[in-house]
Design a binder for these strands. Structure first.
Length: 408
DNA sequence: TCTGGGGTCCTAGGACCC
DNA sequence: TCTGGGGTCCTAGGACCC
């Protein structure tokens, strides 16, 4: 999708059209640009740029908070449209998808015709523009769609992949970021064509497994774990996490622990939504100087219970925090799913009790919003003042916002 | 420039097992 | 004495993507 978040915001407020728009938050907030309109991009604003920087480059831009629910909803509509064109659709992210069009010619016609129909149907059903790359390999299709933006279609004929890629910057290859770019530049490699001329064995020796994949990519082949899988297979999440950056760094333990408790609740809620229990819990701490540590702990048994998660995370925090050091960011990460039924061990009765209580709490949240119910630990330490200071950081956007959350 | 939040994949070292 | 080779699991960190 083209400038997806911005385009969705334009559906809600058409007066934004054509103007420099930045989605991500207020210009004086800690945060980065999620999406910039094409008008804003003319000033050098781009995603991942700090909001404060974007403001300096384009003070006249309209800065908007993001609306994840709106984007999710639009993304689902996009998916429905794509499903009309192929049964094999894989949403690669909220605004990007792969379609396997094998065997759809009789229904949709040749590639270019199908793509044009897709664009028209997309605009009609969602009001949004997209761009399309057509190729025999998904990586080439992806790069093709990037080159086609905005609102364009690009078909790379089979057998002409290397020729299409050769003049492009290596940075265009998905997986080549700042670091790899620098490493390749140091070897005099700037264009994909430079890469294609090298021996795969040389790249492998230099960059390991990744080097070998790079050699393949430079020729237009799908390579690497993600690109090798078939289109359309969706295997649930491998990890679930939440993190929070304070608007001002803090060393206040009460405030830190209440934030951790809140993050644990959010993680627990998502685990239960997916019917998962996690064996490994990980704490993330970022200090004022941006130095970041992660500390994990694995249990034999998995859990999806907020209080159990919080106990483990708090222990990790107390053991690893440099007392007095100001904290910028906290994160809670769950992974290592356990299969189905868990063992009945000591403490199982307590576990069952919490499981029932949380099921009730989740129902209340469904009806009254995420802030309807909360652990007492999340409410201590000035959580509510904090919530006021930064309303966007409230867990979820409840339909109602009760004045008095009920401590569990 | 003063750096979000939610993810995936990869590497490397160490504990432990046979 | 001075030290194998295969494997798995765990932890920590980092590159990268949208």
């Amino acid at each position: 999708m083209d400038a997806f978040f911005v385009s969705v915001e334009e559906l809600y407020d058409p007066s934004l059209k054509g103007k420099p728009v930045v989605v991500g938050g207020r210009p004086d907030e800690r945060g980065v640009v999620s999406a910039a309109s094409y008008a804003a991009r003319k000033f050098g604003v781009h995603s991942a740029m700090p909001l404060r920087t974007a403001y300096k480059m384009c003070p006249q831009a309209i800065f908007l908070d993001g609306h994840p629910e709106r984007y999710r909803e639009a993304s689902e509509k996009v998916f429905e449209v794509l499903r009309e064109f192929s049964p094999l659709v894989e949403m690669a992210s909220i605004d990007e998808a792969y379609l396997d069009m094998t065997g759809t010619e009789r229904l949709h016609g040749p590639p270019l015709k199908a793509a044009h129909r897709l664009h028209a149907r997309m605009k009609e059903a969602t009001g949004l523009n997209c761009s399309t790359g057509i190729a025999a390999a998904r990586m080439v299709a992806k790069i093709g769609s990037d080159q086609a933006k905005p609102n364009g279609i690009l078909w790379v004929l089979p057998g002409r992949e290397a020729e299409f890629l050769a003049p492009l910057d290596i940075r265009k290859i998905p997986g080549v970021g700042k670091v790899t770019e620098k490493n390749l530049n140091a070897l005099g490699i700037r264009k994909v064509g430079d890469l294609a001329r090298l021996e795969p064995a040389f790249l492998e020796q230099r960059f390991g497994k990744w080097g070998l994949a790079l050699a393949g990519k430079s020729q237009g082949l799908d390579a690497g774990a993600w690109f090798e899988s078939e289109i359309g297979e969706d295997e649930g999440p491998k990890s679930i996490s939440h993190e929070h950056t304070f608007s001002e760094d803090t060393a206040d333990t009460a405030r830190i622990e209440s934030t951790l408790s809140r993050l644990c609740e959010m993680v627990g809620r998502r685990l239960r939504e997916h019917g998962l229990t996690a064996r490994t819990l990980q704490l993330k701490l970022r200090y004022s100087d941006f130095s970041t540590i992660t500390r994990a702990h694995s249990n034999e048994r998995g859990t999806e219970i907020d209080t159990e998660i919080y106990e483990a995370i708090r222990e990790l925090f107390r053991r690893n925090w440099k007392p007095g050091a100001k904290v910028r960011l906290l994160g809670v990460h769950a992974s290592g799913w356990t299969e189905g039924g868990q063992l009945n061990l000591v403490g199982e009765e307590r576990h069952e009790k919490w499981a029932r209580t949380l099921a009730t709490a989740d129902k209340l949240r469904d009806r009254f919003g995420e802030s309807a119910v909360s652990l007492a630990a999340s409410l201590r330490g000035g959580f509510r003042e904090h919530a006021q200071e930064n309303p966007a950081s409230l867990p979820g956007k409840g339909r109602s916002d009760p004045k008095d959350p009920k401590p569990l």
